[in-house]
Computed example of a mutant assay.
Amino acid sequence: MKRSAPFAGPVNTRPRGWIAALPFILVTLILGACYACVAGRLPERLATHFAAGGRPDGYSSPQGFLAECLVGLLVLGVGLGLFVQRGLPARAGRWMVATAYFTAVCLGGTSVTILLGNARGGDPVGLRLPAWQVAVMLGAGLVAGALGWLLAGAEPEASRPQGGTVRRLDLPAGTRAGWSRTVSSPLMALLAAAMMCAGVLLGVFAGWVGGAVMLLSSLTVAVHCSVRVTVDWRGLSLTPTLLPVPLHRIPLAKVAEATSRRIGALAEYGGWGYRIQPGRSGLLLRSGEGVVLRLTSGREFVVTVDDSATAAALLNTYLDRHRSGEGS
């Protein structure tokens, strides 16, 4: 029986995608709290854009300004987080995290400053955004960028996974067995909840077209945050715990071999969730042991789940039966 070997060289296992998204989440919460505190003192028209001299040259409603800020922060946070998780651009993850912190603090701090300035009352035409405030925001952004650089850690060294465990179950002829486990990601559940709240806010303050898009996106994330993995004589299937419909099914006839090994979600696949890469794909809600299927097409499909060695052994047992013509 072949055992899995450790990865070659040390790897950085920090969740860089979440680290990159964290400042945007915090800034969004701070901006929402500030808006809630000063909403009753805001005029009907806000000065929201300023020329080089600090004079306003663009205006918006309070609801429109809030919606624009929330959408911008959310899109940037999700976008930069996904880029960092997928390792794009290659070997520049640490710089991307630092950029995320710099951007979040600069944009969020400027939005809060504009909001508080308009809350002082008076004609928004007379509001000013002096250069010293811009300089303070840039300085705070640089400090935040340095913090992001430290939190990201060193760039991971390249590593290649080694072969996994291949074995069979001692299943009596003519009998059938099934295996099932549930794997969940609390962080993805929190992300889905945050996106759902953002969708409701967008719907209330900016219109339900954008809100509906955000709500549908949150449902997509929610569907993937908890999945039941099932192995039986038909093959492997992934079914969301929130829905009775299989998310993905791999028939036994499409499997060449099943193994079990430890999988580093970030080091090998660049992040978590449903991952698609050249020659391989899979559902990775965490790092750790997982089932690895070598398909007849030559591709590889993986899913991280507890007791993966038993699942792989059961699949191999059914594969032996199928090839020998014994049936299931």
Rank of each mutant, 00 (worst) to 15 (best):
F301H: 12
A311R: 02
V303F: 14
E326L: 10
L319A: 05
V305H: 09
T317N: 05
A313R: 06
F301T: 10
E326K: 01
T296D: 14
T310Q: 12
T310I: 11
A313K: 07
S308C: 10
S308M: 03
V302G: 08
D320T: 01
L315C: 06
S308E: 08
T296E: 15
V303T: 11
R299Q: 14
Y318D: 01
V305E: 12
A309S: 12
L314Y: 09
T317K: 06
L314I: 05
V303R: 10
R321E: 05
Y318E: 00
T304A: 15
D306L: 05
T317E: 01
A312F: 06
D306Y: 05
A311N: 08
T304Q: 03
V303G: 07
G325A: 04
S324N: 09
R323K: 00
T310E: 14
L314Q: 02
Y318S: 01
T317D: 10
A313W: 05
D320M: 00
A311T: 07
E326G: 00
R299Y: 11
S308Y: 03
R323P: 02
F301E: 12
D307I: 04
S308R: 08
R321V: 09
D306K: 11
T310F: 06
T296K: 14
E300W: 07
D307W: 10
T296S: 14
L314H: 03
A312I: 07
L314G: 06
D307F: 13
